[in-house]
Design a protein around this nucleic acid. Sequence first.
DNA 1: CGGATCGTTGATCAACTTCAACGGTCGTGG
DNA 2: CCACGACCGTTGAAGTTGATCAACGATCCG
Lengths: 194, 194
Amino acid sequence: MYDILIQYITDYSSVILSDEESTLIQEAFKPKKLRKRQYLLQEGDICKYLSFITKGALRQYTVDDKGVEHIVRFGIERWWVADYEAFINQTPSKYHIDAVEDSELLQITNERLEELKRQVPAIVVMIKKMDQRSYISHQKRIHSAISHTAEDRYTDLLNTYPELIQRFPQNMIASYLGISPETLSRIRKQMTLK
Amino acid sequence: MYDILIQYITDYSSVILSDEESTLIQEAFKPKKLRKRQYLLQEGDICKYLSFITKGALRQYTVDDKGVEHIVRFGIERWWVADYEAFINQTPSKYHIDAVEDSELLQITNERLEELKRQVPAIVVMIKKMDQRSYISHQKRIHSAISHTAEDRYTDLLNTYPELIQRFPQNMIASYLGISPETLSRIRKQMTLK
DNA sequence: CGGATCGTTGATCAACTTCAACGGTCGTGG
DNA sequence: CCACGACCGTTGAAGTTGATCAACGATCCG
């Protein structure tokens, strides 16, 4: 399962890792398995780990006073999960993270990650690229949310991340888009008629 | 005008800069003035510079096919502006950036910034902190957009960035929130009645 | 087999947009 | 320096979009 991570780092840093570096990486990340519906993090928890998904699917979300869930992020293979705010500041999280399928993760603490950055330069390059990509995708999602209709936002997601739509149930997709499950159902019906 | 930047870097890196470092920074950033309504960047331009605002107010936005503007970002003193995507990849921008007031900026190119990071460690620390803060604020804005009503989003902005509401005309605030100017006007009226 | 969950559909309701009109203010050119 | 036009915020009326509530069938899983 470490090979997926090594491959990921190679892809994102454009650096081929030495055997020593690979070993350092494997020592720094600890495996964790989650059953479907199991929490990785609950509201109020400190987020100790940054997790790399080698298998499965997770979601990060809040629950409002009416009990409605609002999904801010999905994660599948080769994605990272953590409540960044809680992870960086080591403060209680405002979010829940749980497994939507049986999942396998590789986890690292903040301190260990800093150490690894010093030991393996490729990690620094990879993290920089990840940060840039997430900045850009956040910007796009914000733009989408403030300027497009529900249908356009769904079409957008369909084009950008078709994997997610195949992978997560429709009501979660609706929550991610900020619309009701009923509305998404109707939008999909509309679209098949065209 | 450089003192604002030096102070900012000191604040965000928690490092006191040597005279040499201050000099290096001043040499790397070039001043630029903008008249109100003047473009810093137009759609299709390559974004050559990252700009630090020492005075004034700017906005980053798109214009849709109906001619409606959608503001994704504001900037005032001690904020940075650039179309990150276009800046990093040196590709044509999808956004416009212009001055809402007469403004003064300090600009740096990507290469010069990389050089400066090697020369002044405090810059690296500062950028890391900026990245973290922007990640968190993006996450919050996305969460706000998908889970709150227009009124809640306005109240949120009022609490988080009161400076922006005092500084930018109401129709721009509405655009930033993703609602029509009329709706914002009515929301404000509602709120004063309470 | 039985309960829970999910997607769908219909009816009604609330939120927000659009269109139009009006008064106030600001900046600009004559 | 004034007058005019452009822009901005406000308000009303009507229209649209999406939310809510309720019911139903299908599927999945224990």
